[in-house]
């Protein structure tokens, strides 16, 4: 399977920011500083369980349900 990391990143950003453009940028930055660079993940990126688990934890940290 491909693209799960990107889907999780997009979901975290969308939920946390509520669509606010400033908060979308801030949330992207928070995800990067937590260790996952959103720019590195595309819909074609092969799924990596380590990254998926890390993103689920980031979602929990940021209080969003992904």
């Amino acid at each position: 399977m491909n693209g799960q990391a990107k889907r999780l990143i997009d979901a975290i950003i969308a939920q946390r920011s509520g669509g606010n453009p400033t908060l979308m940028i801030t949330t992207r930055t928070k995800i990067m500083l937590k260790g996952v660079n959103p720019e590195r993940f595309l819909t074609s990126t092969p799924d990596d369980p380590v990254i998926i688990n890390k993103l689920r934890q980031i979602g929990r940290d940021l209080g969003v349900n992904v």
């Binding site: 930055t29 990067m32 500083l33 660079n37 720019e39």
Partner: peptide, 9 residues
């Protein structure tokens, strides 16, 4: 630097 949107951290 960690790079995001062309901006280094």
């Amino acid at each position: 630097g960690l790079m995001l949107d062309g901006e280094p951290y």
